[in-house]
Design a protein around this nucleic acid. Structure first.
Lengths: 340, 340
DNA sequence: GCGATGACTGCAATCGAGTGCACTCTGCAT
DNA sequence: ATGCAGAGTGCACTCGATTGCAGTCATCGC
C-alpha cells in the first residue's frame, strides 16, 4: 500500500542514498553533481513511489514559489478571463502557477488580497487592476517585487506593462465614423482616474482634430465607472444635450449601456445614432444591433504579460518593458451613415 | 528602518521573551498559556514591527494552509465567475483563500493542476469541472481530502454537492411552453457524460410526459459539448428533421447556438420557433431576441459550496451534504405562442 | 610511491513557526 | 518544613527540501 505522503527521505532510503544526494539527483540543475547511475536509481525510486516534492518545504528553504499572483478587478467582466487564460498557459510552460484573485475594485479588499499573496511568498504580480496610482503598486515596487500591469499604464514609477493600442483603436473608430459621413461625434468617456479612460479620451480628441472636427464639451460625458448603468446614464445625458449622430464609447460595457438608453428613448441604432465600443468582449456580436467595436488580442495580452514577468523572475532581464499590442476594427451593424 | 522580513524571533527579542512564548502569545488558541502582561508586550511588539507570520513556515509545521482550490473547466464561460465570487467572499470571511485554476476541460491539464494544488497542500477542493466520473475526484476521495462539487452531482461515491434545481427549472420551462400552446417540443440536450446534461434531459422527458406530450427521438439531439457551435449544429439537425415549434436547450450557450442556426436558415425566433435556455448568464437579456431562460442563483451557489467546504475543514461536520438551490423562470421574448 | 586533483556522497545546518516536554518558581496545604 | 499543584517559560525538536562544507575514494601525474 502506498504511503499517504511520500517524502524525499523515503525516496532516498528506497534508493539507498542520503536525502541530500536524492535531492541533487532529482533537480535538473544539480544532477551533474551525482553519479549518473546513482541518479538513475534515485529517479527510478521517485517514480516508483510517486514522489512529489513538497512545494511548501521547498519554498521555505529557497524563498521561491514558482507562483505569480494575478489580481483582477472583476472576474465577471468578460474582458478578463481570456487574458487570464493567456497568463496561465504561459506560466505553465515554465512550471509556474497563477494565483488568481478578485479585488472587486475595492481598495480594502485589494489590500487584503495583497497581504494574503505576499504572506504566501508569491514571486511576482500581474495586476489587471485599474487605478492609475495606488498604494498596492507602490508597495510592490518599494519592496522590489516584480510587477507587470495589464491594460493600464502606471502614472508614476516605471513598471512593465502590456496594453492594447488604444490610440490606434480609437483612431480607427473615428476614421470609420467620419468615412460614413458623421461630423457631429460625441463620446462616453471612461473615468479619468483610469489610464484606459484617459488614453482613449485623448485619442478621440486627437482623432477628431485630425479630421478638423470639433469636440465641444457638451458632446463629452465622463462615466464614473466602466459599467452598463453608467453607459446608460451618460447616453441619456448626451441625448438631452446634443445633436450628435454618433457616439464613441470608451469600452463595450459602456456601449451596451448606450444601446439600452437609446432603446429606452425610443430611438434606433444605427438609424438615429451610431454607437461603437472597445474590446470586443463576449457576445458583442449577438447584441441588437451587433456592436461595431475594436478587438484587442485578449489572450495575447495575457501571454505577453506572463512572458515579461517570467523574464524578470528567471533573471533574464531587469529592464522594464512596455508592450503595446495591435488592434482590429470590427465593423458590425451599430454604425451606419447618419440620417441625411 | 524596517527589516525586509520580520520574523517571530525578532518579535520575541523585541519583547524580551523566547520565540516559543511569542508564538503562543500571538495565537488566539494558545494565548491563555501565557501571562497576560507578557502577551500584551508580545502583541505590542508584533504590531510595532509589522510582523506577519510566514504562511509557508506555518504550513510546513501544521500541515494546513487556509486555502481551498477551485477548479474551473472554463473561466471564459460567464456561468462560472459569479460562482467563484461567491466562493471567494465566503472563504474570506474565515480568512481562507481561494486558489483558482482553469482546467480547460482538458484531462491532462486537469491532472497537472491537481498536482500543483496538492503539492501546495491546499486544504480542500471545490470542483466546478464537469465530468461525471473522473479520476480527479476519485483520487481526492481516496486520500480523504474534502471536496465539494458545484453544478454537477457525482455518479459514484458520496460527495457533497451544490446544484441548481434542474428539475424545477426544466419543469417551469416546459409548463411555460405548454401554456403558450406548444405541443411539438424538441430539445437540444447536453452531453450525457455530464450530470447537468443528463439531469435536464430526464427532466424534459418527465415534464412532457406530465402534460401527456410525446418526445419522439427525432425531436432530441444530444450536443457533444455545451458550446455555441454544438447548439448551432443540433438546431440545424432539428430543423431538418422535425416540425417542432419550440426547442428547450440544456443551457444558454447551446441556446445561443440555436438562435444562430435559426437566423442562418432565415427563420425567426420566436415567430417560427420558440427557444429557451438555462442559467441566465451575462447578456442573455441583450440577445436578439432576449432569451427566455432559467435563472440560477450563481453567487449563492458559490457561497453555499464554500460554506459546506468550510464546515468540513473546520471540523464542524463530516457528513456530506447536497444543496439544491431554487431557480426562477425568466420569460423574455424568445418564446411566444406557436403560429396558428 | 606519494601528493594532488576531482568526482561523489554524506553531514549538518537552515528556512520560520509551532508544540511536547521539562523546568522554575510561586503559593498554598499539610 | 515538606510536598504539591499549577502557572508561566524555555529548550529542543519537528515539518521537508536544499546546500555549504567536509570527508572519502579513486585516479592521475611526476
Amino acid at each position: 500500500m502506498q504511503q499517504l505522503k511520500v517524502t524525499l527521505r523515503d525516496v532516498a532510503a528506497h534508493a539507498g542514498v542520503h536525502p541530500a544526494t536524492a535531492s541533487r539527483a532529482l533537480s535538473e540543475a544539480t544532477r551533474h553533481q551525482v553519479n549518473a547511475e546513482t541518479a538513475r536509481r534515485v529517479v527510478a525510486a521517485a517514480l516508483e513511489l510517486g514522489y512529489e516534492p513538497d512545494l511548501t518545504a521547498r519554498t521555505l528553504r529557497t524563498g521561491r514559489t514558482a507562483t505569480a499572483a494575478v489580481l483582477i478587478p472583476d472576474l465577471t467582466n468578460p474582458l478578463f478571463p481570456p487574458i487570464v487564460r493567456g497568463i496561465e498557459d504561459t506560466l505553465a510552460e515554465r512550471d509556474f502557477t497563477a494565483l488568481i484573485a478578485n479585488t472587486d475594485n475595492d481598495t480594502e479588499r485589494e489590500r487584503r488580497v495583497l497581504r494574503a499573496m505576499r504572506a504566501r511568498n508569491v514571486d511576482g504580480f500581474i495586476l489587471l487592476t485599474a487605478h492609475r496610482n495606488d498604494e498596492t503598486l507602490a508597495a510592490l515596487i518599494r519592496d522590489q517585487i516584480p510587477v507587470v500591469t495589464v491594460n493600464r499604464t502606471a502614472s508614476g514609477p516605471d513598471v512593465s506593462s502590456v496594453s492594447p493600442d488604444d490610440n490606434a483603436g480609437i483612431s480607427a473608430v473615428v476614421d470609420h465614423l467620419v468615412k460614413l459621413g458623421h461630423t457631429r461625434i460625441a463620446t462616453v468617456a471612461g473615468p479619468r482616474t483610469l489610464s484606459t479612460g484617459r488614453a482613449r479620451y485623448k485619442a478621440i480628441t486627437a482623432g477628431l482634430r485630425r479630421h478638423g472636427l470639433p469636440l465641444p464639451t457638451e458632446r463629452v460625458v465622463f462615466a464614473r465607472a466602466f459599467s452598463e448603468a453608467e453607459g446608460r446614464r451618460c447616453m441619456t445625458e448626451l441625448l438631452a444635450n446634443t445633436d450628435a449622430t454618433a457616439v464613441v464609447a470608451a469600452n463595450d460595457t459602456l456601449a451596451v449601456g448606450c444601446l439600452d438608453a437609446l432603446r429606452d428613448s425610443g430611438r434606433s441604432c444605427p438609424k438615429d445614432m451610431s454607437v461603437t465600443g472597445f474590446n470586443d468582449i463576449l457576445f458583442m456580436d449577438k447584441l441588437s444591433p451587433p456592436l461595431t467595436t475594436v478587438r484587442i488580442p485578449h489572450t495575447e495580452m495575457g501571454v505577453e504579460a506572463a512572458r515579461i514577468l517570467l523574464d524578470q523572475l528567471l533573471g533574464r532581464t531587469t529592464a522594464t518593458k512596455h508592450a503595446v499590442l495591435p488592434i482590429n476594427l470590427i465593423v458590425r451593424e451599430s454604425t451606419a451613415a447618419p440620417r441625411r
